[in-house]
């Protein structure tokens, strides 16, 4: 079964599009885009063992840093730059998003919602930092550097003059349409410059 976020992203990306996946992990999304949408994809990933998995899937990937490695690309080289579940682990968010919006015509960002109702309940009733299915880490072992809600990210986009074209939101493998900042455990944003 295909993960819903992958399915949604594959639905957004046009066939034959040129795609850059930042923090592409084991290359599952890239290989899906290649197979289903005949995309010309490449990824940037920091862990060598993940790169070997990408290679076994037949995906092009270069080991490197999201923070600095987009400098080599000219403007609008890609149709889509994807940051799925990687934005919250980035140090220099503004630079990365600026670069992504420069080298990509559109940017797809997928983030977990740190303020969904289950997280809020844990904070309110238990007085503890939430640990949920979409936020499985404890405070001491989380790779996440940024803790944000879907609303926080929307506000950020408004402040930075980034247009949100689409914003499908997900809860437990289903799409949510109302009160997304309360109910969704993650959100996908399709972004572009004006």
């Amino acid at each position: 079964m295909i993960r819903l976020d992958y399915e949604i992203i594959a639905g957004i990306v046009e066939p034959g599009a040129r795609v850059l996946d930042l923090g592409c992990g084991d290359g599952e999304l890239l290989s899906l885009l290649k197979e289903k949408r005949h995309c010309h994809g490449t990824g940037i990933e920091i862990l060598p063992q993940q790169i070997l998995k990408c290679m076994e899937r037949g995906v092009s990937v270069a080991q490197g840093n999201i923070d600095s490695d987009m400098d080599v690309y000219e403007d609008k080289r890609f149709d889509y730059v994807i940051l799925n579940e990687s934005l919250q682990q980035i140090m220099n968010i503004e630079k990365v998003l600026t670069d992504a919006l420069r080298v990509g015509k559109k940017v797809i960002v997928g983030i977990p919602n740190f303020c969904n109702i289950r997280a809020r309940a844990q904070i309110f009733f238990r007085g503890q930092v939430p640990v949920t299915e979409s936020l499985p880490y404890k405070w001491y072992n989380t790779p996440n550097l940024r803790f944000l809600s879907l609303r926080d990210f929307r506000d950020f986009c408004v402040a930075k003059n980034i247009v949100i074209e689409k914003n499908p939101c997900l809860c437990e493998g289903k799409q949510v349409r109302f009160f997304t900042n309360l109910f969704a455990d993650s959100g996908i944003f399709v972004l572009r410059r004006d």
Binding site: T42, P48, M55, Q63, V72
Partner: peptide, 21 residues
């Protein structure tokens, strides 16, 4: 190697790069 990879990317060459431990 990274210097080469950057130049190859700039030239739109399909390049895969891995730094093995």
């Amino acid at each position: 190697s990274q210097e080469m990879v950057r130049a190859l990317k700039a030239d739109d060459v399909d390049v895969t790069y891995v730094e093995m431990q």
